[in-house]
Nucleic acid binder design. Structure first.
Lengths: 237, 237
DNA sequence: CCTTGTCGGATTGTTGAACAACTGGCTACC
DNA sequence: GGTAGCCAGTTGTTCAACAATCCGACAAGG
């Protein structure tokens, strides 16, 4: 049917298609949004601070129009709020927001665990190892007392839990939720050791998952989230 | 404490605060996005069609920059796709997308039903009545053979199911998912009677919910979604 | 026949300037 | 003390321009 050369070419295009995203193919507005998002997630932009179009545009070296496109993206991700004719501000979470964030996470994460029972064994093993890797990263960061990295690794743990469902959309939603949750962490600045006690709990959940105890793992995670939520809400007051 | 006049004024501001949104307080870009979103949801803009900045801007009477802001929003909602230096197109769903949409819906909807057992009775009754209302609307539209309205009511049913969780974020996610799903319906144009058989199933689920049989309702919905997914995927081929 | 090089029109990406609309604070006035 | 009006600064939106890129057409070459 196909000559050898033709098959080779097909292989090329398959391989190349994966790297298409690497060839910049990204607008200035998106790169600006990426930068701002990282600044917010890292806590370098405190909740409540206003981002004036003029100064932010000059600082980043982009025009006002481009900056506004980037703002739209981040507003849509709830990291910024837009008040008409007043400007954009880094979002300040209310207690209600924290409650709802945990409610939504509970929905997604426990659901993903329940869905894990239908995942074929080899794929499941791969996803479980991603969970383990996140826990290990958290442990390593903890011994070095890099609490910000512990937080990052902990977020990755929860994203890996969500990834059990194997749904790109669920993954993206979860990523957005965790980014939003960072706003809460940074709002309550005194939480340097907030994440530490959860590392051990994470291990326990991972162990249950490894044993195929999906129901028990879901219940444990549910309880876990309730505790974390309460603790964060307490820190709010 | 407060003088009568002061209390009157407080009443005013409370009442007025509800109407604040009516006083435009919304940017042109958002209104443009709303319009385009409705056009896509209604199927007046077919998947795959390109939206050129020049002609769309002239048609809607807005500048190119404003239009681009609106495009960003809809791209973020996955209703449009943006190809660098090529333009924006109404999204064309692949079979994978349909699968993932149903996967995510299953996560959210069955999770919401499970969460319903913790909702206080009076609030629960209110939310269940919203579900009933959606079903009734679908039945009414069915007898008049307005199949597009049946689809809309059916979407509202599933949003009402999700609303059992009482999470604004989950509600918004679900709203986005249903909008995205419309793309699939319109891509397979031959589905005029696609929604009809589900009305009865919806009734059955609502009955189970009313009886407090949350586990059974979740299982029924899960099965329901599996069937619907298969049927839609078949229509894709 | 198929591939490759080249060209020109059309569209998008991005910028800067301009003006209208609005906000927030200041002042003067009662 | 409160209120109306004014004013500087910011945002909302448009417009025009230019650079970068895409796409189809057409020609050249194997």
């Amino acid at each position: 049917m196909a000559s050898p050369t033709a098959r080779d070419q097909a292989d090329w295009s398959d391989l190349l298609a994966g790297d298409r995203a690497l060839l910049d193919r990204t607008s200035t507005a998106e790169r600006v949004a990426d930068a701002l998002r990282q600044w917010i997630i890292d806590g370098r932009l405190r909740p409540g601070t206003q981002l004036s179009e003029h100064s932010a545009g000059k600082a980043l070296g982009v025009s006002r129009n481009t900056l506004r496109e980037a703002f739209r993206l981040l507003v849509h991700e709830r990291l910024l709020v837009h008040e008409f004719h007043r400007g954009v501000f880094v979002r300040v979470l209310a207690a209600d927001d924290v409650t709802d964030l945990y409610r939504t996470r509970r929905l997604l994460e426990t659901g993903a665990i329940r869905a894990a029972s239908d995942v074929p064994p080899d794929v499941l093993a791969e996803r479980l190892s991603a969970i383990d890797a996140a826990i290990t990263a958290a442990e390593d960061a903890a011994v070095e007392e890099h609490w910000l990295d512990v937080g990052t690794a902990n977020m990755r743990f929860h994203q890996a839990i969500t990834a059990l469902a194997g749904s790109p959309r669920a993954d993206e939603i979860m990523q957005q939720l965790t980014a939003e949750l960072r706003l809460a962490f940074h709002a309550t600045s005194a939480l340097r050791r907030f994440h530490e006690p959860y590392i051990e709990l994470n291990r326990g959940i991972a162990r249950l998952l490894g044993d195929g105890e999906f129901g028990a793992a879901a219940r444990a995670l549910d309880e876990y989230l309730t505790t974390a939520q309460r603790q964060l809400l307490d820190a709010f007051a």
